[in-house]
């Protein structure tokens, strides 16, 4: 009996431990995200959140839905396997951030209770509104050189030129049509009138 009496302070210390552990268990119950451990040692909800990231490259199928004429032309040429956005860039281009109207007091109050929907990723949506939103046409002088500038590191069979020697600084689409770049007999360097043909 007196052993317990003389060791009483030790039980007090142990009691602190037990108390801390109980508090830990309670807090843990509330703090750990609900979906944690559903598939493994991680938050399963994260999968959905990562999958919700907005896409910017729409995929060539989307472009071909409307531009079937270009798709047909391209499929017969050397660039058949070059996807639209490889040259034209992502269909959804980020817009320059413009001055958004500041939320008024009421809107800010509502936002406190009901979190507002995630802001629309300010993207150019050519596919939704083809008339008013138009992607910029790439400059062929820069664009073509990216792939076709000669380099020993490139595969031997890949068509490559030294741009300065090859075209004397003329834009590539003077002679080549980017969608089907094989030399067109009619398109000689002097036929500058044809230049716009490539982008028509």
């Amino acid at each position: 009996m007196s052993v317990f009496k003389d060791a009483g302070h030790l039980f007090r210390f142990a009691g602190l431990f037990v108390l801390a552990f109980l508090i830990f268990l309670v807090v843990r119950h509330y703090v750990v995200p609900k979906s944690f451990g559903q598939y493994g040692h991680y938050r399963a909800a994260a999968l959905g959140e990562i999958a919700a990231h907005p896409a910017k490259f729409a995929g060539h199928e989307t472009c071909e839905g409307c531009h079937s004429d270009v798709a047909d032309k391209k499929s017969k040429g050397k660039h058949a396997h070059v996807n639209c956005e490889a040259c034209h860039g992502a269909l959804f281009q980020p817009l320059p951030v413009t001055g958004q109207p500041k939320p008024n007091l009421y809107e800010r109050f509502v936002a406190l209770i009901v979190p507002p929907a995630p802001p629309d990723p300010l993207l150019l949506r050519h596919a939704e509104d083809p008339t008013s939103v138009k992607p910029v046409l790439p400059d062929t002088t820069v664009l073509c050189a990216r792939c076709h500038t000669a380099s020993t590191a490139k595969p031997k069979g890949f068509p490559q030129v030294v741009p300065a020697d090859h075209s004397n600084g003329m834009p590539c689409d003077t002679c080549h049509q980017p969608h089907s770049p094989g030399m067109d007999a009619a398109a000689a360097p002097d036929a500058t009138a044809k230049a716009a043909g490539g982008v028509k």
Binding site: S2, K5, D6, G8, H9, F13, L16
Partner: peptide
């Protein structure tokens, strides 16, 4: 911890 027991034991 509220215990002032410092008996030799």
């Amino acid at each position: 911890l509220g215990s002032s027991n410092i008996s030799p034991r």
